[in-house]
Design a binder for these strands. Structure first.
Lengths: 174, 174
DNA sequence: TTCCGAATAGTCAATATTGACTAATCAATT
DNA sequence: AATTGATTAGTCAATATTGACTATTCGGAA
């Protein structure tokens, strides 16, 4: 549902076509939504059938024709409702990476540490990238700050996990 | 893929049937995976076709018959590969709740604060619940700690967001 | 003992999501 | 002028995911 909110929210600001919407989201909001192109088109079709959007065929130069979407009044209402719903609810996070941790025992401590160090490198890289984003390049400042805080917490935690494994690794090597 | 890892990891410890697996995950690992019953059965079928599992029909009392799954050697290899993959990669989090924040402007500040306060209550509740889980009730300690750290960060951040909105709200009321 | 609600075990049709593809155009290079 | 590779715009068949349903049984209350 949040993806629909996003599409509506963007269309509310300017009329756009599917390709444009996907491109924008992919470039500027990748940190909070992962919306594949095909899914975007699917949702746009669905919302058009719901009467929330009106498409207008358009052609620019020799480019393929495209459907530019415009919010209807019903679309605006849907947007208002979803926005309130979204702001007022707390979404539980899912930590995909925790599943492996639940099975840490099945690996030798040393290897576990190596694997997690690899994870740590990627995490650090994402943190660096997030901290480097110059203010006002599309993405909301709030959202970037949220990401940074989250990544810092993750890094701290991962370091602690690694620290906790290591002593075992020394025991085994003695 | 992480869901397959989870199922394999559990089956590696004890043979189980679908209902049992789903129940266990639902009760003890809800914080890191959301795996619906129908999906669990679907994955079990798929992994059986991949030759990772061998099902055995079983009957207990007058209960419906059930398929108890057992890991094959191929299943064990798949588990090993997925575990390493999972531990070494950093999964980017998706913050569904950030989408609303990107559109905060479209609401009066006062209402925004109210909505976010509602969110805050739910968040606080989840934090309390997580902190209350007694050690050693199924879920890995690491996973619970991870959740707690994450929720604390979220709470801090949400408070800051609310704080930032409020001044505007006062301006408007003067 | 009979009635009720919860638990057990799973299926299935409907939805949602994705990867892989098409087909044209532009811009730059050779 | 021809080639190439990126960009534009979107489709489609294959997969994955879910909500809603079935049908039985168990335990306890009335």
């Amino acid at each position: 549902m949040e993806r629909e909110l996003l599409l509506l929210g963007l269309l509310r600001q300017t009329d756009m076509h599917g390709y444009q919407l996907h491109e924008f989201i992919h470039r500027n909001m990748a940190s909070c939504v992962d919306l594949k192109k095909a899914t975007a088109y699917y949702l746009l079709d669905k919302m058009t059938e719901s009467g929330w959007l009106i498409p207008t065929e358009e052609q620019e130069g020799g480019r393929p024709p495209r459907r530019v979407y415009q919010l209807t009044e019903a679309g605006e209402s849907a947007y208002q409702a979803m926005l309130r719903e979204n702001l007022s609810t707390h979404y539980e996070a899912r930590f995909t990476g925790d599943i492996g941790l639940a099975f840490l025992d099945s690996l030798p401590a040393e290897e576990a540490v190596n694997l997690l160090s690899h994870r740590r490198t990627a995490l650090q890289a994402e943190l660096d990238a997030a901290q480097t984003v110059p203010p006002h390049v599309g993405t909301s400042q709030l959202v970037i700050e949220h990401l940074v805080r989250h990544l810092r917490t993750e890094l701290d935690w991962l370091d602690e996990v690694i620290r906790r494994i290591e002593p075992r690794s020394e025991q085994e090597n003695t």
